[in-house]
Design a protein around this nucleic acid. Structure first.
Lengths: 216, 216
DNA sequence: GTCGAACCGTACCGTACGGTACGCCAGCAG
DNA sequence: CTGCTGGCGTACCGTACGGTACGGTTCGAC
């Protein structure tokens, strides 16, 4: 019943994690058709146990999404010695991580689930995904950006705006098209271009916010 | 049963349009909870009529989304005399239209519905939204961009890439956050900033693709 | 007026699924 | 061995909702 957002790792027993894995698998393959019976069967446990552990269907869904979303850990970049080169590499790495995650099947499924959920006045899943997706990136990227600015390598007024522009340059229309099921965007199709796109986005970002650029 | 995508305006009688309006209203206010009974009651018609007209629930949903999506008509910009000033105004207008639409409650609802639908192997709604959303903009913007390039006002290699970057600069993370139900983005909150954001996005686009810029 | 078509309102059916109850079998304490 | 606890499997209940059937009403054709 509590709608609290757990940022800390909820401690799940291995058995419970197996159940969550089963639930996630079902989500990914069956889309929205996640039924308690199906999870119970897949995980070889009883429905009663599910209800005991997770309260209700929403609880199971929340636990699954949260548990999985928390797994997406962006590699922390080294900030200690910030040269133009390392800054660029860091930002490029962020772009690569962001795009790789967003393109992944699990991410698409989780986002779809959360959006579906949000279409019913229940925003908890949306918040979790938001928290572990865009906002997590923002939290990690912002310090880098600000360090870059302090080192006179970047120029911008609001790190928030800089971050959001970065997001836009990297993600473009890929995410919404994936969520909408655009068949023209196959997994392999995108992955083949990730490096090119990451490079292009990084270039554009530096064109806009590099110290020598005017971004009036 | 046919999943054909009707691009042409399906000819609906006024009565049928009233029904579709009712369905859309319910969709917007009740989120996903669109039931045939509710539509029938709201539109003061019988369920039998609904099934007669639209076949099944999916048919009604499709008709609603398609009918509404087709209403989003981007104003056609004048291409006849293309100066640096008119080009900029055109692109700025596109940015404004795009952002205004995407931020709208109806758009959010339609996109959520389509995403939910796409989460169940049914991609028809997603295709419709895609077709009338991003792709419609692309179809209209691309000629402008190419005209700008022909007039040596813009510089890019692929108009597709230019368009997608434009999309990213304008939309950034707004759409996904709205879809996920981010409470921090209230309607008024966004609308107050639309002009600023539009201006910024246009500036950035010209920085990246203006004739004098390097977009290596 | 009669006839028929379109349509409203409502009762009804079947099913899927969330949630609960219960019987049964470990495994372990004593 | 007995008894207890945790968890599996399954049968079950209630409800919501998609879809159908049917009686009643309006309205135009003739």
């Amino acid at each position: 019943m509590p709608v609290a957002i757990k940022v800390s790792e909820e401690t799940f027993t291995p058995r419970q994690q197996a159940v969550l894995t089963a639930a996630l698998d079902l989500l990914v393959e069956n889309g929205d058709g996640l039924t308690m019976t199906a999870v119970a069967r897949r995980a070889s446990c009883s429905k009663e146990t599910l209800y005991k552990w997770f309260g209700d269907r929403d609880g199971l869904l929340t636990a699954t999404v949260q548990w999985q979303a928390a797994k997406v850990r962006m590699p922390v970049v080294d900030r200690s010695h910030l040269s133009a080169r390392t800054l660029r590499l860091s930002i490029e790495q962020f772009a690569r991580d962001l795009l790789t995650v967003i393109v992944g099947e699990v991410s698409v499924t989780l986002n779809r689930t959360a959006v579906t959920h949000a279409a019913q006045e229940k925003d908890s899943l949306g918040l979790i995904v938001l928290e572990n997706g865009p906002l997590a990136i923002r939290r990690r990227l912002k310090p880098i950006l600000e360090a870059g600015r302090d080192a006179r390598l970047l120029r911008f007024e609001s790190s928030e705006d800089a971050y959001r522009t970065f997001f836009g340059l990297v993600v473009r229309d890929v995410q919404i098209r994936l969520l909408l099921g655009d068949k023209a965007l196959t997994q392999s199709n995108i992955e083949a271009n990730i490096e090119v796109d990451v490079k292009a986005a990084t270039d554009q970002f530096f064109t806009l916010f590099g110290a020598k650029a005017s971004n009036a």
